[in-house]
Computed example of a mutant assay.
Amino acid sequence: MIFKDLNISLFNSINSFAKEHTLLDKAAIFLAEDLNTVLISFLVFLLVVQWKTYHLLFAKTLVIVLFSLLLSDIIEFFYHHPRPFQIDLGHKLIGHGSTSSFPSQHTITVVIIGFSYWMAGFKKIGLMGLLCAVIVGLSRIFVGVHFPFDVIGSFVIGFMLVVSVNYALKELAIRIRRIKPVQLID
């Protein structure tokens, strides 16, 4: 119960500013719904401009994001956590369905982007992605569709997915290098 109470308390402390200032609400709505689109558009622009540099990393990141969608569905199947507005908490500034609130898919997508680029050596893009993830996560709480632990869980899951895929690809590359070619024709 202590985690539930802490989660609700943190939610209330962030969401309590909603509906106090119209400009702040509009900014939070943009950040909650569209900042990830802006970041992805920037990455697509980089991909087009410098294909050779970014194409493999972009593809790997896209696969991890798609895998995170599947994982989110699996989590929801086994564990449905209500959204704040479903239990009459806080102010809801955007429309949202009654799907499970854990994890925040908006946040996990940007977390995966940030960690993928950062771990691939593109530190500035990665840090920009992680900063965007923090902003998206906080804004999703502010607009009333996620709890703080949904966002924290998204960071943990996103990090674990990126590390796991990087490890699996590294192991796969090592095993492929060990394979000796077989001569089929004499």
Rank of each mutant, 00 (worst) to 15 (best):
M1W: 14
I2R: 11
F3G: 07
F3T: 09
N7E: 10
N7Q: 10
S9Q: 09
S9Y: 10
L10G: 06
N12H: 15
I14P: 04
F17Y: 15
A18H: 00
K19T: 14
E20V: 13
H21C: 15
H21V: 14
L24F: 14
D25P: 00
K26R: 08
A28I: 09
L31E: 05
L31G: 13
E33C: 09
N36C: 06
L39T: 03
L39K: 00
L39D: 04
I40L: 15
S41D: 05
F42D: 12
F42A: 11
L43Q: 13
L43P: 11
V49L: 15
T53R: 15
L56N: 15
F58H: 11
A59D: 12
T61I: 05
L62Q: 11
V63W: 09
I64F: 10
I64A: 01
V65A: 06
L66G: 14
F67N: 07
F67W: 05
S68H: 08
S68C: 10
L69K: 10
L70H: 06
S72P: 11
D73G: 15
D73W: 12
E76G: 13
F77M: 14
F78V: 09
Y79E: 11
P82V: 09
R83S: 04
R83N: 14
R83Y: 05
I87A: 12
I87M: 15
D88F: 07
H91C: 03
K92N: 05
I94K: 05
I94F: 00
H96L: 11
S100H: 06
S101P: 02
P103W: 06
S104L: 09
Q105M: 06
T107C: 02
T107F: 01
I108E: 04
T109I: 03
I113L: 02
Y117W: 02
A120P: 05
G121C: 00
K124D: 09
G126Y: 04
M128P: 01
L130H: 01
C132G: 11
C132I: 01
I135C: 13
I135Y: 04
V136C: 04
V143T: 05
H146A: 06
H146K: 02
F147A: 04
V151W: 06
V151Q: 07
I152N: 02
G153A: 07
G153F: 03
G153N: 04
V156A: 14
I157S: 08
F159I: 05
V162R: 00
V162M: 11
V163S: 10
V163P: 00
N166M: 08
Y167K: 11
L169N: 13
A173K: 14
I174E: 06
I174M: 07
R175C: 10
R175Y: 10
R177H: 12
R178N: 12
R178K: 13
K180P: 06
P181K: 10
P181I: 14
L184I: 09
I185N: 05
D186P: 13
